[in-house]
Write a protein that binds this DNA or RNA. Structure first.
Length: 576
DNA sequence: GCCGTTTTCGGCCCGACTGTTTTCAGTCG
């Protein structure tokens, strides 16, 4: 059994044990082990072979044995046993907001409820109220939870959430009681998809803020309303939480609610070891059963008090950032203002909805100093891909525009389909005329991993490819990427000096941030590309910057932080 | 089930909110 399947199995065991009513720390041990494997970056099969699993933190003798059994036999007696006690569909019930393992256990044991549909029916028949610990309100809450669960998988693309969150911030920021406010949670950490919006406000007078929050327009539901915390569901289906804390507590609360959960746990454990207690209200020195608050003006001071360099939110995923901060080795992350130009732009030559000249105007209005145009190549008939004569026509127009507009540079590029055999989409003669070539897979997604990897590797070994576009082809919340061995892709790209794209389209965000770090460690240059077809798309670049930051990228790791001349040199060097 | 400069036993991050209770359990983040 491969690593990911083992991670899934361990999490499944944790779910079952919780439903069974096992000791919660034991359940957590399974989750911790799953998490440890997820973050482990080395050679997994070697670890098993050499019997060194138990050396990993969070995996002891018992779990090491279980993981080994899973690897070797593809199954585990414990897992089989748990699966025979409970129907598989119970795991689905856990995903309903307001329904946890205890409630699942109760409805299953008392009413033999196994599916979301059966649970909904029981609520509507008013049957849940008779259960111990349940009441009318609980039943209503579960019904609402089911409705929300059915409406969406519960996650949203980052551009949608960003605009909703801005709307919420705007509705609060001018209230005189608001001292400061900030978005926390996964949005602040620049995750690729977001479950809900967490807003944090510092104020000495929470009441009017709470009121304003729940009374604003475009709210579908108020799910929580307390003195310091309220929750709403917006018409778009996105949940939003507001928490109000005192100005003194604000940095601690901001740190706490930014997460990730794993980062928080690690930070708190560190605090405990140092004789502190850290929570959303403060950092406390514990001496003789007395707690003394250490005042911190901002997050930076909290980290400093814990002996750490400041850790930017994007890095707070418990993937080595605390160790890096300990050694003062936190990277100086690339930022929006470092981006000087952008590549991967589609004009109306293929399937974009603006002209070449429009593209220049939009880019200039955003303060950029160059763009790289890359329309689709001839095989992409669905996208009006360019035949060779069209390519030449576009080159002429680019030459004219470059002459006309002095302080701006347009690079000639193409997004060439990587054909099913791994070839690029034009002959060498034409390919050599482009400043840059993005190779992308747009067809035959259902190849086997080995075939797909070979196909892409062949393209990467083509001397005319400059960048690999959206390396996995995923569409977030809609379609998984094609199966591909990313480690092999990264290896081959490094060997052939191919730039990897961070596609900044909110549907893609591909290369995934988890691989960005691997890529730059191999010396690969990344390019943040909006892959835009319309005016608004230019501004998606910022989501790509988020991915790069999350992938530990500094300015020098990114192609489009360089000047036009520097970029041209890189392209020329690659071609030669 | 894991872990250890206080520890091989007894903790494990912890507080808000809700609802069902009459002091607490469950869920969430």
């Amino acid at each position: 059994m491969e690593k990911q399947k083992i991670i899934d199995a361990l999490n499944e065991i944790a779910d079952w044990l919780e439903i069974k009513g096992e000791n919660s720390f034991k359940c957590n041990a399974y989750r911790t082990a799953a998490r440890t494997l997820e973050v482990f970056d080395g050679d997994f099969s070697k670890l098993i072979e050499e019997d060194k699993l138990a050396e990993l933190k969070g995996i002891g003798k018992s779990l090491a044995e279980k993981i080994t059994t899973l690897t070797k036999t593809d199954t585990l007696p414990l897992l089989e046993e748990l699966r025979s006690i409970f129907p598989n569909s119970l795991l689905e019930l856990l995903k309903i907001p307001g329904v946890g393992p205890k409630k699942v256990k109760t409805v299953f044991e008392k009413f033999d409820i196994k599916t979301v549909g059966e649970l909904e029916y029981a609520c509507n028949e008013n049957r849940l109220v008779e259960l111990p610990g349940f009441g009318l309100k609980t039943q209503e809450k579960i019904l609402k939870g089911i409705e929300l669960y059915k409406r969406s998988a519960g996650r949203f693309l980052v551009d949608v959430v960003s605009s909703s969150s801005e709307r919420l911030l705007n509705s609060l920021k001018n209230l005189k009681e608001v001292n400061s406010l900030e978005v926390a949670g996964s949005l602040r950490r620049a995750r690729e998809t977001v479950k809900d919006i967490d807003i944090l406000v510092a104020s000495k007078k929470p009441e009017p803020i709470m009121k304003a929050f729940v009374l604003q327009p475009k709210i579908a539901q108020i799910t929580n309303q307390g003195e310091t915390k309220s929750s709403i569901v917006l018409e778009e289906g996105i949940s939003a939480d507001l928490r109000v804390v005192s100005p003194q507590e604000f940095p601690f609360a901001l740190n706490y609610f930014t997460g990730s959960k794993e980062h928080n746990v690690a930070l708190r454990s560190r605090a405990i070891k140092m004789g502190f207690k850290l929570n959303e209200y403060g950092l406390f020195k514990i001496e003789d059963d007395k707690e003394t608050l250490l005042k911190c003006k901002n997050e930076k001071e909290i980290y400093k008090a814990l002996g750490l360099a400041y850790i930017p939110p994007e890095l707070r995923e418990d993937r080595g950032e605390i160790e890096a901060a300990e050694k003062n080795k936190i990277p100086e992350l690339v930022s929006d203002k470092d981006v000087l130009g952008i590549f991967h732009i589609h004009t109306d030559y293929s399937d974009g909805i603006f002209t070449l000249r429009n593209a220049v105007e939009i880019a200039k209005s955003l303060g950029l100093i160059y763009i790289g145009v890359s329309d689709h190549s001839q095989t992409a008939a669905y996208a009006n891909g360019l035949k060779p004569d069209k390519v030449k026509q576009q080159w002429e127009e680019i030459d004219k525009l470059n002459e006309e507009i002095g302080d701006f540079k347009i690079f000639k590029g193409i997004e060439s389909d990587i054909l099913v055999n791994g070839a690029l989409d034009y002959d060498e003669n034409l390919l050599s005329g482009f400043d840059f070539v993005i190779g992308s897979v747009h067809s035959h997604f259902n190849m086997k991993e080995k075939e797909m990897t070979d196909r892409i590797i062949r393209a990467l070994e083509n001397p005319y490819i400059t960048m690999l576009g959206h390396p996995t082809g995923r569409l977030l919340l809609a379609r998984d990427g094609y199966p591909v061995d990313m480690d092999a892709i990264i290896e081959t790209s490094a060997k052939n000096n191919v730039i990897l794209e961070i596609n900044a389209n909110p549907y893609r965000l591909d290369l995934d941030w988890r691989y960005c770090r691997k890529a730059i460690e191999k010396g690969i240059i990344l390019s943040i590309n909006p892959d835009t077809h319309r005016r608004e798309g230019f501004e998606h670049t910022k989501y790509g910057v988020g991915v790069a930051r999350k992938g530990w990228c500094e300015k020098h790791h990114i192609l489009n932080t360089r000047t036009a001349d520097e970029v041209l040199n890189i392209f020329k060097k690659k071609k030669s």
